[in-house]
Amino acid sequence: MKSAVVVFPASNCDRDAAVALQRATGKAPRMLWHAETDVPDDLDLIVLPGGFSFGDYLRCGAMAAHSPIMRDIVRRARAGTPVLGICNGFQILCETGLLPGVLMRNASLRFVCKPVALRVEETQSLFTRRFKRGEEIKIPVAHGDGNYFADEETLDRIEGEGRVALRYAPGANPNGAARDIAGILSENRRILGLMPHPERAADAELGLTDGSKMFASILEALP
């Protein structure tokens, strides 16, 4: 599997994502600077990492969504190239319109940084196929703007289409997200945006390992 991690100014989880990908696939991902205009043709997976791209100016992810490299990424994503957006990457995917809705300021107005309990709602995706439906997992979050919002009609639609991949477990919603949504899939199920950081839960020495199942799922789907 050939993967790439995009690096924006003030990305800060790009190397963690690269380590997790390398560990899962045995191959180092390409690191793509945001100012590049073309994505290599042979990529099986593009990762938009966590961080605070462009200092969260204007809105989280709004500037990065218009970085030069994003034009090609949006084009490829629409054509079916899998994209994983973690935290700031999820915010960027929403700002590009590849995923519906928006991540707003946490309802508490506080930055939250802690492991949270999640429920895997959908296993019909290349990111979640190794999990069991309804399985409860623990993955850290670290964000100030993770409060997922979309209008009721959009929420009903993505729920009806089975696109809510991950939900905060009952009582564990750390940010006020609508319907406890922690991660959603695109219509073609090849794009996943999620607020929790699977790359921070992929090494036993750091405590949590549930995130490694996501990378194992991706490798299984895209050998």
Partner: peptide, 9 residues
């Protein structure tokens, strides 16, 4: 429409 506002919210 393209940048300054997010018309979802």
């Amino acid at each position: 429409e393209r940048l300054l506002a997010n018309t979802v919210i």
